[in-house]
Design a protein around this nucleic acid. Structure first.
Length: 212
DNA sequence: AGTTCGATCGCCT
DNA sequence: GGCGATCGAACTG
């Protein structure tokens, strides 16, 4: 099993970042998806920078789980923003979404890839076959497995600065120069395939390579 | 109660 | 590029 080095120590990551407030998510899902690039997904002491995300809308978006209305599974998507929607796909993989839009309006963002920052040893233990650190979380099912995110986190508040198991944080201070953002069609769906609701960093090594 | 099939991944050729 | 794994949500009757 290869050993990967953390990009920075956990306490430095905590000091250099702050949890995103609920208002961040209180916007159209596409805006939230684009804005989430460069933010930090944190589960326990495992963390990675978001490099790819997709927006899913409401009743007109036939690719979205919410398009068929409120069900026991989708109720979180219709709830207040800043919460996690986690579901099981293909019987074996969990997918993490962050709820956008005000309560009563459907909209969420599928996190498709993160670039590992902290806890790489534990991530590689969870995904022993992976040879390069940028492949640990370069897909929606890969990142939940690497970070240990499951349906147990469905519905949790990701804006809690203290105490939350799953939090999204932003770097403090001045924005660093960052890669160009590409918008293109979403992956793995059969409806609304022309809508440019997938956002990712151009040329980033941790972006999922599914269907180029 | 039974059936269908999916916001995926990794291994095979 | 093709396919099997694996299971629960949603829909049919």
């Amino acid at each position: 099993v290869p050993r990967f080095e953390d990009r920075l120590p956990w306490d430095e990551l905590r000091a250099a970042s702050v949890a995103l407030p609920r208002e961040f998510y209180l916007r159209p899902a596409a805006e939230v998806a684009r804005s989430l690039l460069g933010k930090i997904l944190v589960h326990g002491e495992l963390a990675g920078e978001i490099v790819e995300a997709e927006a899913y809308l409401g009743e007109n978006d036939l690719a979205a789980h919410a398009s068929r209305g409120v069900t026991p599974r989708t109720r979180v998507i219709f709830g207040p923003p800043g919460h996690a929607y986690v579901y099981l796909i293909y019987g074996m993989y969990e997918c993490l979404n962050l709820v956008a839009e005000p309560a009563g309006v459907a909209g969420c963002v599928l996190i498709r890839a993160v670039d590992p920052l902290c806890g790489l040893a534990e991530m590689s233990a969870r995904r022993p076959a992976v040879r390069r650190p940028e492949d640990l979380a370069s897909g929606p099912g890969k990142l939940t497995r690497a970070l240990g995110i499951t349906r147990e986190q469905n519905g949790v508040d990701v804006t809690a600065e203290s105490g939350g198991p799953l939090v999204v944080r932003a770097w403090r201070g001045e924005e660093q120069p960052r890669p160009a953002i590409v918008a293109g069609p979403r992956i793995g769906i059969r409806e609304c395939t022309d809508w440019p609701l997938r956002f990712y960093y151009a040329g980033h090594r941790a972006v999922s390579r599914v269907r180029a």
